[in-house]
Write a protein that binds this DNA or RNA. Structure first.
Length: 488
RNA sequence: GGUCCUGUGGCCGAGUGGCUUAGGCACUGGUCUGCAAAACCAGUUACAGCGGUUCGAAUCCGCUCGGGACCUCCA
């Protein structure tokens, strides 16, 4: 554990407030995040959740915890709607595109991983799939039945919510009362298999024409969506683990059902800290695949979309997200992205400057105190926006030292360098500009700038400006300073 | 309709009782520069409305208006 870190506090959705984080086993953290259903390209809203929890994972790791990070991939069982005729999302897509379901899964899993890599998200330690854990799911269903909380009906198995509620509070996570849920339940067709409309499927009987199905003690079928997370989190993290994350929209019913399933099967509530990331909005409305109000990461990176006036790089988007707290909604607009881009560039420029500073006998600001503020911000429920504000305090100082208006001691400089690296690169996950790679361009630019400098020395402003304007047209910005010209 | 969240300056977005004028962007003035860009310095704009609690509220309570989420698949 980092000695300089303040006590980590996490907002626990179940408790409804911040709690000191104390892991079940000292030094270790079990961390589960609900992953995507791979039936289409991940959109930016999906990405925000995963990026938020990537930041959480990075900070936990930085604090010295050994984290086992599990994020599932849902590749079966997620129905288009809740009616019994509801079609599996993967199967539907497969039918429409005349592909094997696993082709769909493969295609969109690859897309998901590609996008996450672009956002510089660290891969989970384990990324289990629902189809790869049929046996575990079947065993868990059996456990729930054995404990009297599941019942068979027409080849399907349902979770008996009313029975469960007699001894455990169903709805505690989302703040619902079972009576309200019952009175608000809409009457859907084909609910006759269930004893109660609130009951949810653990196993669904598959019709003969159904293409994704497995044998089970209750007949040929497939698992209910909520079950996979319970089965896989139990398998890899235990019956009780530290942190479970996911989007706010999964709170009910998905996470509520996970609590019920885990409790019904194992006799204990599975999760110590429930974390929920908030939604990304576009034009003030929740980004959602089903409504079409969404934008794909690639459309954002290429600028080929109807919402934004220009393209934005993955790191700018990530930085933008880090400027908002993960529990707040964040509205995506072109104007906000442009502002974030400038801020991002300023921060990254300072990161470079930081490597070239001269040291003095003493520092003009309290550098250890500033770095302590970094920890304070992040330890307060991962308050990245406050961290970013502190980072800009550092930027101001860095530029001040560069301009000779401030001084920094050698010791403090090293502290600041490591602190900035830790928080900007390791924790916020902002990759320092990947301007390597273009090996041929650098020497060419050196030559061009050298020629321009000659022109400037000769006061041949026509030539020097022509070079500058020409480069600008090519997207290269030239910056002059006392030490010479640079480009980016 | 039910449950819950939210409304901060031109924009984004922190802050939950008494110096945060948070921070970023934008804007204005200045420094620097051949000019510009970038940097730097300084400054402007705020807490939806009404009422209440309090010595004191952006921060607590009530109401009004507005926005959103969930209640059905969604990160």
């Amino acid at each position: 554990m980092k000695a300089e870190a303040a006590q980590l506090k996490i907002y626990d959705s179940l408790a409804g407030g911040k709690r000191n984080f104390i892991p079940l086993k000292e030094g270790f953290v079990g961390f589960y995040v609900c992953g995507p259903t791979v039936y289409s390209n991940v959109h930016l809203g999906n990405c925000r959740t995963f990026i938020s929890f990537d930041m959480v994972y990075r900070y936990l790791r930085h604090l010295g915890y050994k984290v086992r990070y599990v994020r599932n991939i849902t590749d079966v069982g997620h129905l288009v709607d809740d009616a019994d005729q509801g079609e599996d999302k993967i199967a539907k897509k497969a039918r429409l595109e005349q592909l094997e379901p696993m082709e769909i899964v493969q295609q969109y899993s690859i897309d998901f991983h590609t996008v996450m890599a672009q956002f510089n998200a660290i891969s989970p330690n384990i990324e289990p799939t629902a189809t790869g854990h049929m046996i575990e799911q079947i065993e868990m269903i059996q456990g729930i039945i054995d404990n009297g909380f599941g019942y068979k009906s027409n080849g399907s198995v349902y979770f008996d919510v009313e029975k469960y509620n007699e001894t455990h509070p169903y709805g505690e996570l989302s703040g619902r009362k079972i009576e309200d849920l019952i009175s608000n339940t809409r009457s859907l067709d084909g609910q006759d298999e269930k004893r109660n409309p609130l009951d949810f499927a653990l196993w669904k009987n598959a019709a003969p024409e159904h293409i994704m199905k497995w044998p089970s003690p209750w007949g040929i079928g497939f698992p209910g969506w909520h079950l996979e997370c319970s089965a896989m989190s139990t398998k890899y993290l235990g019956e009780e683990f530290d942190i479970h994350g996911g989007g706010m929209d999964l709170k009910f019913p998905h996470h509520e059902c996970e609590i019920a399933q885990g409790t019904a099967c194992n006799g204990k509530s599975p999760v110590k800290y429930w974390m929920h990331g908030n939604m990304l909005t576009l034009n003030g409305q929740k980004m959602s695949k089903s409504t079409g109000n969404s934008i794909l990461p690639d459309e954002l990176f290429t600028g080929k979309n109807q919402f934004m006036e220009k393209a934005f790089s993955p790191m700018v988007v990530r930085f933008f997200m880090m400027q908002a707290h993960y529990r707040s909604t964040l509205d995506f607009t072109s104007e906000a992205l442009v502002a974030a881009e400038k801020g991002h560039d300023k921060l990254m420029e300072a990161m470079k400057t930081l490597q070239e500073l001269n040291t003095g006998s003493e520092s003009t600001i309290d550098v250890p105190g500033l770095v302590a503020q970094f920890y304070k911000a992040m330890s307060d429920d991962f308050n990245a926006p406050v961290l970013v504000a502190q980072l800009f305090e550092a930027v101001k100082f860095i530029n001040g030292v560069r301009d000779g208006k401030q001084t920094v001691s050698k010791e403090d400089l090293e502290l600041l360098q490591s602190g900035m690296h830790n928080f900007v690169v390791e924790i916020l996950g902002l990759a320092t500009t990947a301007d390597g790679g273009d090996d041929k361009l650098a020497p060419v630019m050196d030559l061009v700038l050298d020629l321009r400098q000659q022109a400037r020395t000769n006061k041949d402003w026509d030539t020097s400006d022509k070079i500058r304007d020409g480069l600008a047209a090519a997207g290269i910005v030239v910056k002059d300073s006392k030490e010479g010209s640079s480009w980016s």
